[in-house]
């Protein structure tokens, strides 16, 4: 069992890494060139964050390319498949609004490294949230088709929102010592942000549903294994090589 800080850094790093990997799948295939560039830009920021957070937990490359599913600690939301552009945006919308609030608080961490990473990343993530919010509004208040698609996309992602606000006994002591953020306290502001954008998008708040959880303890969906088998292919096929 790893120590608390290591575990916390893995969770933060894995969230960024897995979502960055997912967004990288869009590269060259987005609905228009400008969107291609924005999604790549977000992916690039996330891979950068992952490198820094995983660096706290150990050798970032080793962690990224040599762990298997059970040892990844990202939330289930980020490993969800891209689906169509609406599904991708719905995922980004829920995640980036959360990550922005999280990083804003993390800049106050007693751990100087975490605080410094968050200080740099919070500006990036504010842009990700704005991008996602704007697309939510365009798709919700666009055409009948875009509206139907974003409703579907949200429907897929909605059950993964609650996990973002879970605190377990790994994080509890870190919150007490001022290292980790108490995400439970972010829920109210997140709910407001989500509600505000949904209303601007003329969309209804999806109905509450049973939360899907497990990522933080390595109990993932089926999607993560396939993502890893692709991401880790070279490191697995040529053990010990440096690139």
């Amino acid at each position: 069992m790893t120590d608390g800080l290591t575990e916390y850094a893995l969770r933060l790093g894995d969230d960024s890494l897995i979502l960055g990997q997912r967004l990288g799948e869009w590269c060259g295939h987005a609905p228009m060139l400008e969107v291609d560039l924005s999604l790549t830009n977000v992916a690039l920021d996330l891979v950068g964050q992952a490198t820094l957070f995983l660096g706290i937990a150990g050798d970032a490359d080793k962690l990224a390319f040599h762990r298997d599913v059970l040892d990844f600690k990202n939330c289930l939301l980020v490993e969800q498949p891209n689906g169509d552009f609406a599904q991708t945006i719905a995922r980004q919308f829920l995640f980036s609004n959360w990550q922005e609030l999280l990083f804003r608080e993390l800049t106050q961490s007693r751990n100087a490294t975490l605080a410094a990473i968050a200080g740099k990343a919070v500006k990036e993530v504010a842009y990700h949230a704005r991008l996602a919010n704007e697309w939510m509004v365009r798709l919700g208040d666009g055409t009948a088709e875009s509206r139907a698609r974003i409703v579907n996309g949200l429907d897929w992602m909605w059950r993964f929102g609650d996990e973002l606000f879970d605190v377990d006994d790994v994080v509890e002591p870190l919150i007490a010592s001022g290292v980790a953020v108490d995400v439970r306290k972010l829920r109210g502001e997140w709910d407001q942000r989500i509600a505000r954008t949904l209303s601007e998008a003329t969309l209804e708040m999806p109905k509450p549903r049973r939360a899907a959880k497990g990522g933080r303890i390595g109990h993932h969906s089926e999607h993560l294994g396939h993502l890893l088998s692709e991401m880790q292919f070279l490191q697995r096929a040529y053990p010990g090589a440096t690139w």
Binding site: G24, E25, A43, G48, T51, L54, D61, M231
Partner: peptide, 15 residues
């Protein structure tokens, strides 16, 4: 991009 062999190579290729 999805198969780049290190985090640095992935970031450089994305960029």
């Amino acid at each position: 991009i999805t198969r780049a062999p290190s985090l640095r190579r992935k970031a450089v290729l994305l960029a």
